[in-house]
Each structure stands twice: as structure tokens, then as C-alpha cells.
Amino acid sequence: MTQKPKSKQSSTRLVICDSNVIIMMSIFKPSVMFKCKYTFGELAVHKSAITEIERWLRPDSKKLKKFGKPLIEDALRYCSSLETDFQEPALAEREKYHRIMSGLENGLLAAEKGMPTSTVDKDLLLYAKKHNASLATQEQTLRSLGRKVIAHDRILSFEDLVVDAIRQKLLTESEVRSDIDTLTRMGESLRTDGQHKIEAALNPRNVVKKT
């Protein structure tokens, strides 16, 4: 049965999840990752991410070959309960957000690398900006542009969510290590800085303080 998308409550802080984060959470302790009450806010999924994952079920899809049908269907099931009705902006408003983001893709410094993104990338940022939400994504280019559009600390990654769950003692070290192995076997690797964050959360005493 298809669930009706949740309506956004203006008082609730949201974490909008990109499809790449949803699939990682579906592999890595979904029972914890999709249920956790994150300090960053409540998980939310926009229908564009769901549509994207649904497209992974095409017979010739590379994601289908990589993950298999059951895992993709699980991911869709997990995120269906998180689908949020963001109230689509009017076309003129959407275009206004998009064209400003397109301008900012250049980078502010001449030596800085640019960050061309797609319309779906920009939509995800638009919802995060408009609803004062965080965006959880593994996509480097989107993360770079995101830092120019919403506050730095509102650009999250899968690893940030794992760290939050570790700090809330919802995940044990052995669970984390074994599920990271599973992720690696499934061809999903952690971001290098995220890996360090997880390691620090698992062993806070071992962390060498920056001088």
C-alpha cells in the first residue's frame, strides 16, 4: 500500500536524504539508520530521490546489477515512510533558485574548482534551503555547491548520520565494523574524512588533537 507523503511541519528540523545515502542506510543497519532520532533533525525524502531509486529497477540498470532487486525494493520500502511533501515551489520560484545556484557553480575564487550540478541536484538544495533543512549526500560536487547555498554544518553525509547513531549508543563498534565491511563488499565506500569521523566516534580516546 502506498503511504501518503508526510506534510512538512514548520517546527521540525529536517535532514533531506539523497538517493546515495538512502541506499547506504539500507545496507548498513537499516533498522537503526532509518529509525534513529538524529540530533540534526528528522529524516525526509523527496520524491525525486524515490523516483531515481525506482529507475534503478530498470532491467538494464547498472544499479540493479550491482545491488540486486531485493535491496533496491527494501530501500524503496524504507524511504516510502520518510517521503515528505515539500510543497513544490512555483515554476518562477524554482527557476529563481536554479539560476542563482548556476551562477554560484563557478566558484568564488579563480583558483577554485567549479561545481556544475544537475537540475535534480539543485532541487535537493532548493528544498534544503527553503525549508531550513540539512542535506545528506555523498556527492562531492553537490556538497561543494551546498556549502555556498546552505550553511556548512547543514551539509551532511552518511558518515555523519552513523556518527550520530554511535554517539547515541544505538550502534556497537562490532556492528559498525561488520556493516562497513558489508558496504565495501557491495561496492559502496565511505568518504575518507567520514571514515575518520566514524573512527573518532568509535575510539574517542585515540583521537589525536590538532595542534
Binding site: 540498470s61 547498472k62 544499479k63 574548482k113 556544475p116 544537475s118 535534480v120 556527492e139 561496492g187
Partner: peptide, 25 residues
């Protein structure tokens, strides 16, 4: 190298975003 989103690559090459993501990986 993360200076072009895989979805943007998909838009340019007119292929599916998921496929572009796997190719980039």
C-alpha cells in the same frame, strides 16, 4: 575528481543518473 556531479554528467550524456553514477565510480 568530484568537480562535476554524476547527475550533471548524466544530463550531458543523456543517460540515466544511476548509470552515470556507477560509470563515474
Amino acid at each position: 575528481f568530484g568537480h562535476l556531479s554524476s547527475r550533471k554528467l548524466a544530463e550531458i550524456l543523456t543517460i540515466e543518473a544511476g548509470d552515470a553514477d556507477e560509470i563515474v565510480r
